[in-house]
Amino acid sequence: MALPLKQIGTFLPSEISFLAENTSVSIVPRQALDVLELIGLNLPAMRPMRRVEVPLWVAIILKKQSRCNIIAPTWLSEDSLKAAYEAEASNMTRFSNKLPWEWIEVGELVLTSAPDDLACPPHIIRNLLRDIREIRQAKVRAGLKSLDPTYMQIDNVGAMELNEIRQFVTMTMNELRVLQNGRAEEEAEEEVEQYPGEDSDLEDTLETTEYSIPRDSSNFDDSLRSRSRSAAPLGERRPTSRAPAYEDDEGDEEEDLEMDESYLHTVKDNSSGQR
């Protein structure tokens, strides 16, 4: 609808790259250009062979027309990339801080738009970048094993790397949290018979709801409140997303299992709804 499914809760790689185009780089213009007032900045006056700092997207436009040379950022040189690789390899549990936030995107953009401006052959840089990326990906994968529903810390991660794992991490952690809350409540509370919707049909459900629960939300006691919070992802989906077929074959399953099922169901439902 307003937002394509692919863009909900995450960014497209192209959007991350778009963001990275706002980082500033040094260029050596080959042509004079007066100060140019833009919306997000004023471009400095350019004189041939005088270094100026401009956003990367300006540099790429000028470079395409061969009106400037891009000076690659210092971290994008053979030596510092090798150092960065060493740093990555020396500690397999943390990311090194030798690379900037947008390192994948900026590296890629500079390599494709200005391969001739690099101090050493572009394939060397490309290989180094790939090596670093692989070693960091291995760390990410290792980190994903220890996901838990409280929090996670990932320092010095890159924008693109973060975006790659964003949906997986947030969805997993959200689901883990729901499961954990469900379990905690099962232990703490016994009023299970008040919990409708296991297999009763819609009308029954709504009626029991009416009898047992006061309408006015200010009257809920705390136990109900906490229950409703944890049950929310389940409850809010059920009225709309439950298909008749699902109700039939789902008898007295375990609650955990059912959460998985209804979750899968919503995923399916969402994707078909979006089309």
């Binding site: 959200n174 919990y195 709801t209 229950r227």
Partner: peptide
């Protein structure tokens, strides 16, 4: 908006963010 089956979707503030 009964607490068991609320009909009004509200943002889940417990969702994880980076």
């Amino acid at each position: 908006n009964s607490p068991i089956l609320p009909m009004v979707d509200t943002p889940d503030l417990n969702e994880f963010v980076f």
